[in-house]
Amino acid sequence: MKKEILTAGFVLFSLSLPLKASAAFSQFNVFGDSLSDTGNVFTFTQQGSPTGVIPPSPPYFQGRFSNDKIWVDYFGDAVGLTPTLFANLGSTVPTQGINFAFGGSKSGQDNAFIPGAPGVLAQVSGFLATNQKVDANGLYAVWGGGNDYLFGQNPDVVETVENISNSVGLLAQAGAKNILVFNLPDLGRTPIALRSGNSPILTAATNAHNQALATSVAQLSNNIPGVNIIPVDINSLFNRAIANPEEFGFKDVTTSCVVYNIVTNQVLKTCNNPNDFLFFDEVHPTTNAHKLVAETALAAIRGKSVPEPSTTFGMLTFGALGAAMFKYKRKQLAVTRTKSNL
């Protein structure tokens, strides 16, 4: 298997810097896609996207693909840690961790829509390129795979799960002791799948992915001494919210508040009551759903099952952000692609 190493952007700032101790963890590092992106895509597109800043604000909130804060924000508030955006590494010292997540990221090296932007495995590889031994007291979150199935050509469950597992394994081998690993919600239940008629295919892919990921995570836990790999079962929680929306405070779990043309970067419709919806747009959850994601992750760390409210809808990121959008930023991102055997 080939891997591409994201090198630039990590050189100046090593997480061996003095860290502020907060809660039980010294730092919070996040690897993923738009469900975890607190502003990386937004920051880069402020500097010259041909279609304007992505996602547009309003109705999207301060670079998040939602109507307000996302799970990373709520979780960070709970543990007292705020990760620095990867996009801001040139001006901010990351004393509490880094959020590497990019809207559009696939599970491996690439982004589904943005040439040069890193996939989840590339995010982890780039981080480790300058932090060969990571902080054992830190918390690491890995969440990805949805874009492979929603927007990939001939997606391969084995390859997708391998990418996520390799991301987790690399972190563990480098010294990470506490790693959150999120599974996928039923992608066939998202509004984009329901509208397109692809629900059966996406549901089957989700189920196969989650089964393989659970097996792989269990093997990693057995094979790497001392690592605490913490599964976060978003799939069950999402299904529970779909089945019992009133218990979770939702009135609509099949359609979305916003209709967004992701090709032209135009919002075609919005609503006045977004938090009545599970989905803010056809692939991203509302902030109330993100609160439940954060609660689910916190409960997983405590080793408890989550009470009735817990849901999210998973690894989706806005499609068709456009290849042209990131051409202007490729030098600034300074992505070096180095191929080697994994």
Results as ranks from 00 to 15, higher is better:
Q173D: 08
W143C: 06
Y149S: 09
L292G: 01
A208M: 10
S167L: 11
L150I: 08
V53I: 14
A24N: 14
H284L: 04
V120M: 11
L6T: 05
G80Q: 08
P274A: 05
Q96P: 05
Y149M: 09
I70Q: 11
S36M: 06
A193T: 05
N183E: 11
V227P: 12
L202Q: 08
I201T: 14
R240K: 14
C257K: 09
L89K: 12
P50A: 02
D233E: 15
L316D: 06
T264M: 01
P50R: 00
L298V: 07
V124R: 09
G63N: 01
G80A: 11
P274Y: 04
N210R: 10
N261C: 01
N288Y: 10
G314N: 08
G80V: 10
S105E: 08
A212R: 14
K304V: 13
T286W: 08
K329Q: 12
M325Q: 00
A87R: 05
I224Y: 13
F277T: 06
Q332E: 15
I262V: 02
A24W: 03
S26W: 02
R337G: 13
G9Q: 06
P307C: 05
S22A: 15
H290Q: 12
Q153W: 04
P309A: 06
G108P: 07
A174L: 04
S305T: 14
F86D: 03
K327P: 00
P118L: 08
F28Y: 15
I242A: 09
E246H: 10
V227G: 11
N166I: 02
P55H: 01
N235S: 13
P309M: 06
G103F: 00
Y149E: 06
N341Y: 07
L17P: 01
D252N: 15
P245C: 07
L237Q: 15
N137Y: 02
H209L: 11
S66I: 04
A129N: 10
L202R: 09
A136V: 01
D73I: 03
T160E: 10
N137S: 15
T7A: 08
V283C: 07
G104S: 11
N261S: 07
T130I: 01
F248G: 05
T160D: 04
E282V: 06
A172F: 09
N207F: 13
G52Q: 00
K329R: 05
K3H: 13
K177N: 06
F42E: 00
A334R: 12
T43L: 02
A205V: 02
T336H: 10
N273D: 14
